[in-house]
Amino acid sequence: MAKVVTMGEIMLRLSTPGNEKFIQADEFDVCYGGGEANVAVSLANYGHDAEFVTKVPDNPIGECAVAALRKMNVKTDNIAKGGERLGIYFLESGASMRASNVVYDRAHSSISTAEAADFDFDKIFDGADWFHFTGITPAVSDAAAELTEEALKAAKAKGVKVSVDLNFRKKLWSSEKAQKVMSNLMQYVDVCIGNEEDAEKVLGFKPGATDVTSGDLELAGYEDIFKQMVEKFNFEYVISSLRVSHSASDNGWSACIYSRDTKEFYHSKEYRVHPIVDRVGGGDSFAGGTICGFVDGKNFKDALEFGVAASALKHTIPGDFNLVSRADVENLVGGDGSGRVQR
């Protein structure tokens, strides 16, 4: 069992019931989630020692967010308390050709004002095997970007493997600022995860003629930019999820990876996910599954296949968290995607 630490913002999610638009909703469904928190839940669910680090307000809503993590067996001992509020995001789930829509209400959230002094990183990373963060946290505020770098320095001082999910959020910052901040943080990263938009907006690499809306994935373009990214940042692995959006309810889902040491490029099996129940958290479940594969000791191809299968299954589950079991993922990797009733 590996110790994996993730750090970021956990938020209150308010989503419209079913596929209602905001203007139709008389009530919202409530759950909690956030990129790094979702990864921690996946890893805890697969049996690893997962810990989530953040700052939440010292009030009942903050306690509810922490309780949601504890319920999933995520360790919360080093979560700081304080600040003004918990961030909120509103979700309107799309269907067919109507896209989903997210509205953020996270200004002045507790994590946005957190400082390194709020955390004992020497203690947090003691005995840790892996640290994961995303591009969302540095985008929240300049203070959060500084906090992220301090955490990365502490992790590397302890010899901890580091992964990032680039996760560009245009509603939080510009591509220009993302590239300035994130390019600096890449010096600490061993495993880089992202999709085609992330690679372009966050690091300035565009994978050839790929057009996910038309379903045209030019894999040679991905291999080319992966090699460039390895050359520039010395990543051990570069990984991209590949989502082909036939509609909001119907996606093709696969991934590819490039190994610095073996110089191999590998494309996973593709799953047709239809109908999609909830795609929010799909990328986080992919990151969590792939990290699980690595810390399990799988080779990079098998780790990728585990991550892709895990995230394909997540699309069938409402809420941010991926609640499938390790056995569920292994069955799908093994070829059982029948969906037959288990008796």
Results as ranks from 00 to 15, higher is better:
residue 3 K to S: 05
residue 4 V to M: 04
residue 6 T to F: 01
residue 6 T to C: 06
residue 7 M to V: 09
residue 10 I to D: 12
residue 10 I to K: 10
residue 13 R to K: 05
residue 17 P to H: 06
residue 18 G to A: 09
residue 28 F to V: 10
residue 29 D to I: 14
residue 31 C to Q: 08
residue 32 Y to H: 05
residue 36 E to G: 13
residue 36 E to N: 15
residue 37 A to T: 11
residue 41 V to M: 11
residue 55 K to Y: 07
residue 63 E to K: 15
residue 66 V to D: 12
residue 69 L to N: 03
residue 70 R to E: 15
residue 74 V to A: 08
residue 78 N to W: 04
residue 83 G to R: 00
residue 90 F to L: 14
residue 92 E to F: 08
residue 93 S to I: 13
residue 93 S to N: 14
residue 107 A to F: 10
residue 113 T to Y: 01
residue 115 E to H: 10
residue 115 E to R: 04
residue 117 A to G: 01
residue 119 F to D: 03
residue 121 F to Q: 12
residue 125 F to C: 08
residue 126 D to I: 00
residue 129 D to I: 13
residue 131 F to W: 00
residue 136 I to S: 09
residue 137 T to C: 00
residue 140 V to N: 06
residue 144 A to W: 11
residue 149 E to C: 07
residue 153 K to Y: 00
residue 154 A to H: 06
residue 158 K to N: 06
residue 159 G to I: 06
residue 162 V to G: 02
residue 162 V to E: 03
residue 163 S to T: 13
residue 170 K to A: 14
residue 175 S to E: 14
residue 179 Q to F: 07
residue 180 K to Y: 04
residue 182 M to N: 12
residue 184 N to M: 00
residue 184 N to K: 11
residue 188 Y to M: 12
residue 199 A to V: 11
residue 203 L to K: 01
residue 203 L to M: 10
residue 207 P to Y: 00
residue 210 T to S: 14
residue 211 D to W: 05
residue 213 T to S: 08
residue 213 T to E: 11
residue 214 S to Y: 06
residue 215 G to H: 12
residue 219 L to Q: 04
residue 225 I to Q: 13
residue 228 Q to P: 05
residue 230 V to D: 12
residue 231 E to M: 04
residue 236 E to L: 09
residue 237 Y to M: 07
residue 238 V to M: 10
residue 239 I to A: 13
residue 245 S to A: 15
residue 250 D to K: 09
residue 251 N to V: 11
residue 252 G to P: 08
residue 255 A to S: 13
residue 259 S to L: 03
residue 260 R to Y: 08
residue 261 D to I: 11
residue 263 K to C: 03
residue 267 H to E: 10
residue 269 K to H: 13
residue 270 E to R: 15
residue 270 E to H: 12
residue 271 Y to C: 03
residue 273 V to G: 00
residue 273 V to A: 04
residue 274 H to Q: 14
residue 278 D to W: 02
residue 284 D to A: 14
residue 286 F to Y: 15
residue 289 G to R: 10
residue 290 T to S: 05
residue 290 T to E: 10
residue 291 I to T: 06
residue 294 F to P: 11
residue 296 D to Y: 07
residue 296 D to W: 04
residue 299 N to S: 13
residue 302 D to G: 08
residue 308 V to K: 08
residue 308 V to D: 14
residue 311 S to G: 09
residue 317 I to D: 03
residue 318 P to T: 13
residue 319 G to F: 03
residue 319 G to V: 01
residue 319 G to N: 06
residue 329 V to F: 12
residue 334 G to S: 12
residue 337 G to T: 08
residue 339 G to A: 12
residue 342 Q to K: 14
